[in-house]
């Protein structure tokens, strides 16, 4: 016993002496709490973290992150960042809305920014970042309707929450718009924008679920699937890679998954971009130069906060006229002549 405690104490003191003096060299520290998908989910969390990484590279700031393994971690994770020296704490995900609100109200001097949540009324020290991803997904839906051979497009979500279902809405409306223009009858499986109900894995982690859900949609006739569930979609991509892209193509979300999921990049017809990296970086900039203010920023097609990724592997497969139509629709959404849904 005596041996052990002495040993432990000795080791602790020695290590503290060695490393304790090391403190952050940078003047500004941005901290991020991820959602349960993890920092390397090839999508949502990773894109948000890229914003911090870009800021680290370009502005020389210090960045830290903390992964949530369960919803119960949100509050604890926020708590352990509060004790530290974070100049701004960025929380990623709608589900962290409650926890972020509580922390922000308890710590009015700490700056927060949350991805995918807008508070009403506004909390003075929280900046919400929301995205009109339905605009990007509308374009993807139009593209999918033009590309499907089976006449069926599928989608599924992680959890039935607005930042997820807004993608699915956009996809469904985009398909409907194509049907209206071309007199076709392309069906959307997995989401009904009127009933607000559809397919959900109820998690943002299980690649197995991604595979199973895509398989089910494929069995029902879908040859293009858009998973809106973070890394769950990687499982769908794996299925598509096995089946071959003539049978099943995937539409990525959040990041350009051709870039982030390099192993299976050829299965992505395109990706619906949600440029959290640029908004996060912008928020960090505001916090650094003192212009930070509580409220909401909205990413749209117009300000490049959302968008559609290049077709990459399918560059040649997508007909030129379809490409042109999509460009025109994009312009129409930006100038307001085309309404997404409603």
């Amino acid at each position: 016993m005596i041996h052990t405690s002495r040993l432990l104490g000795g080791v602790a003191v020695a290590t503290a002496l060695l490393f304790g003096s090391i403190s952050s060299a940078a003047a500004f520290t941005a901290c991020q709490v991820t959602d349960t998908g993890g920092i390397d989910d090839a999508g949502f969390n990773q894109t948000a973290w890229k914003g911090v990484e870009d800021a680290m590279k370009e502005k020389g700031i210090d960045g830290r992150f903390l992964e949530s393994q369960a919803e119960t971690d949100y509050e604890a994770n926020l708590n352990s960042l509060l004790g530290g020296d974070c100049d701004i704490i960025i929380t990623v995900g709608f589900l962290m809305g409650d926890a972020t609100k509580a922390a922000a109200e308890a710590n009015p001097d700490q700056k927060f920014s949350i991805v995918d949540f807008a508070y009403d009324p506004v909390i003075p020290n929280v900046l919400g970042q929301v995205f009109a991803t339905d605009q990007g997904a509308f374009l993807a839906g139009y593209l999918a309707a033009g590309m499907t051979k089976t006449g069926t497009v599928g989608t599924f979500g992680g959890i039935n929450i607005p930042p997820v279902t807004i993608f699915m809405n956009g996809l469904a409306y985009g398909v409907a718009y194509y049907n209206e223009k071309h007199g076709t009858d392309v069906k959307v499986l997995g989401w009904d924008p009127e009933a607000k109900d559809g397919l959900f894995t109820n998690n943002f982690e299980s690649l197995d679920d991604g595979r199973t859900f895509a398989q089910n949609l494929y069995d029902e006739g879908a040859d293009i699937v858009m998973p809106v569930a973070g890394p769950v979609g990687l499982g769908s991509a794996a299925l598509a890679a096995e089946l071959g892209t003539d049978k099943l193509k995937i539409i990525g979300v959040d990041a350009d998954q051709y870039q982030t999921d390099t192993e299976k990049q050829n299965v992505y017809l395109t990706s619906v971009l949600k440029r959290m990296d640029s908004t996060v970086q912008a928020v960090i900039q505001q916090a650094m130069d003192g212009t930070f203010k509580g409220g909401v920023t909205v990413g749209t097609l117009a300000n490049d906060g959302v968008g559609l990724a290049p077709y990459h592997a399918f560059e040649d497969a997508v007909p030129a006229e379809l490409k042109d139509e999509i460009e025109k629709i994009k312009a129409g959404i930006i100038d307001g002549s085309i309404k997404v849904g409603g």
Binding site: A12, T15, A16, L18, F19, I22, N79, S80, L82, G83
Partner: peptide, 23 residues
């Protein structure tokens, strides 16, 4: 050095402050 720092953090984060003990 990171390993050393991580174990110091382990100690600090669990016992190093009132907040750590509370957590």
């Amino acid at each position: 050095t990171t390993i050393g720092r991580s174990y110091v953090a382990l100690l600090q984060g669990s016992l190093g402050s009132l907040n750590a003990v509370s957590e």
